[in-house]
Amino acid sequence: MILSRLPAPRAIRRARLAVASVVLASAALLAPAGALAQGMSSDPTLAQTLFEEGRRLMEAKAYAEACPKLAESQRLRPGTGTLLNLALCNEALGRTATAWGQFKEALFASKKEGNAAREAFAQEHIGALEPRLSKIVLKAESTPGLLVRVDGHDIPAAALGTPIPIDPGAHEVEATASGYSVWSTTVQVAENADLKTIAVPKLQPAPPAQAAAAPPGPAAGGAGSAGIAAGGSAGGGGGEGLRTAGFVIGGAGAAVLGVGAVFGILAAGQASDAEKDPALCPGKQCTPLGRKEIEAAETKALVSTIGFGVGVAAIGAGAILVLTSGRSEGEGASAPGRVHARVVPLLGPEGGGVGVVGAF
């Protein structure tokens, strides 16, 4: 029997090093990205500072200054207590629809958390606000690709013809469609259960030069309606395409990284098993068959290393695309649960929101 001297420990170390490299590099690459995302979306210290300052301003009845601070605190670190204070602040400013929607959201959150005191508090304010809610009804003539906006927020096609709670004050209503002239009007909504009906006429075809220059508008009920439901203005454009591409490329990179990890684990296992098998490598001296097993393990280790490199590069490229695409607006807190209810858009002078109606 011919025995060959095998540097089996070296092969095993190489395979294990490939696995360790994948794991450590993944952590090194993804942890900063996660930390960056966490820093962008959640800062507990700043959130608490803004909450306390907002509360101090509310106690001084400086509601116009307090509401933005509470809103930013809620964005940084969503919480039912902060949301209730924000609703109280908007109620004090006369933003009845905004406050009503926030109390509704806080009611669902309190139900989910099992906090009966907060649930009762939110329900009490909802009951007091509902008879006072002012609303608008948007009725539109059929126009292909019609998109209706109120204060820059897209209104889903399904919401047309439905009374939508809205804050008192002046609101801009706009209707657009690709190849048609823009129609707009201003509506003044009064306090205490005012109801305004806006009839959007059939849009007129745009002059040829204007139609050629105008970019196609988004379809009704698409990204814009999602922006309203999230409590902010609609985002989109080229940045959204880059963001999507970044996630796709990053996801592919993560998949390749996973393949590299699998091959690294297989390599380490195959080399280790060969070394421990007395029929293949007795006394660390391998037979030709044992040598083939070790060489196969080294090949898997090489595939693992290549997969690791490609995966890291793809994830890095995806992260760059996502971070340079800009951040979508309207990333507010959503309702934590649904209890036999439906969501309707709410509109205010400083942003969109949602209302929830149904049985609780």
Rank of each mutant, 00 (worst) to 15 (best):
G246M: 08
P163F: 14
P218K: 00
P163W: 11
Q204H: 14
G145E: 03
D194P: 01
G232I: 12
V262Y: 11
Y180W: 12
I164H: 02
T185G: 06
H171Q: 07
A255N: 11
T162S: 05
K196C: 08
A209H: 11
Q123S: 14
A120S: 15
D167R: 02
S142W: 13
L147A: 10
D151M: 02
G241F: 10
T176L: 04
P208I: 10
P205Q: 00
I249S: 02
P215C: 00
L242C: 13
Q204M: 14
A170P: 08
L242M: 15
A190V: 09
A245W: 10
I166L: 03
I136V: 14
A226N: 03
S142C: 06
L133F: 07
T185Q: 00
P131D: 07
I228H: 01
A206Y: 12
A190K: 13
G251P: 06
I164R: 05
E191M: 11
A234I: 05
P205Y: 00
V200R: 03
P205E: 03
A211R: 05
A175R: 02
R243P: 04
Q123E: 15
P168E: 11
A122Y: 09
I249Q: 10
H125F: 08
G236A: 05
G241N: 01
P156T: 03
V256A: 01
V150P: 01
G237T: 08
A255I: 15
G217T: 15
A255R: 09
V200L: 01
G238M: 12
G239H: 06
S225H: 00
K139H: 11
L257A: 11
E174P: 03
A255F: 14
G145V: 02
G145P: 02
A212D: 13
L242I: 15
D154W: 05
D151A: 07
L195D: 05
A219G: 09
L195W: 02
Q123I: 12
L160A: 10
A170W: 08
A229L: 13
D194M: 07
S134T: 13
R132M: 12
A234K: 02
K196Q: 08
G127I: 10
G179E: 02
K202E: 11
A211F: 10
P215N: 00
Q210I: 13
P215G: 08
A128G: 04
Q210F: 09
G221F: 04
P218T: 00
P205A: 01
S225G: 06
V248R: 01
S142L: 14
I164N: 03
A158E: 15
E141A: 08
E191L: 08
I198N: 06
A223V: 12
S225M: 05
A159G: 06
D151G: 08
L138I: 11
D167P: 09
A223R: 04
A213I: 11
A158R: 12
G236N: 01
